[in-house]
Simulated assay, not measured.
Amino acid sequence: MSKIGRIGIKTRGICKILNNRNVVIKNKTFSIKKPFFFFKKKKKIFISVKEKYKKKKKIKIMWGTYRANIKNLVVGIYLGYKKKMIIEGTGYYIKKKNNVLMINAGYSHIVKYLLHKDIICNINNNVLKFTSYNKSLLGNVCNKIKKIFRKSPYKKKGIFFEKENFTPKNRKKK
């Protein structure tokens, strides 16, 4: 049995179970695949597996993954996830029109990036603040934006996370 899969998820009063396969978290419905099912016990949601599948290795791995993903969604809807990114460099800037980020990061053209509908972005003086309930989606979007312009190893230029350490590379000595 999966050690993480057996642990219950605190619902915080915002979860309901529909027909053992779907869970509703504050008006958003999430479903789960075939050998797994949900059940509720003392204000906690548990994910279980049918008895004949408990010995299979892939099922054990996915059991813990499903539990972690559902827990992240519950925490994300209850509290929300936030990430902060900074754009540094002369002439680098970012603008937002509707749901499209337009990034000028040292290229001859402006790079456009379409944001997902579940992500909210605020821009203030080259500081990007992202908020979402979905932790994995938020991380993927931030990493894709960061890869648009890789940081320079010699100068602090590029797109960084707020608390990211930067140690510049030494130049050749003459």
Rank of each mutant, 00 (worst) to 15 (best):
Y133N: 11
K144M: 12
L138M: 07
M102L: 13
K40M: 14
A105C: 14
K33Y: 10
I61F: 05
R150V: 03
L114F: 02
K71Q: 15
S31G: 11
I145S: 05
L101E: 07
S31A: 08
K10I: 09
K41D: 07
K34Y: 13
N124D: 04
K52E: 15
I103S: 09
S108C: 01
I86L: 08
I32Q: 04
W63T: 06
M62W: 13
G64T: 01
K112N: 13
I61M: 04
Y92I: 09
K42A: 01
I7R: 05
C121W: 03
F30R: 01
D118V: 02
K41V: 01
I45Y: 09
L115I: 12
T29G: 00
Y107E: 00
S31Y: 11
K28P: 08
Y107C: 00
N140K: 14
N27V: 00
Y66C: 04
K151R: 06
A105F: 00
K33W: 06
C142P: 13
M102W: 13
K84Q: 05
F37T: 00
K58M: 11
K54W: 02
V24Y: 02
G91A: 12
N122T: 14
I7V: 11
H116R: 04
V127W: 00
I9L: 07
N19E: 12
K3T: 10
F149T: 07
R67I: 06
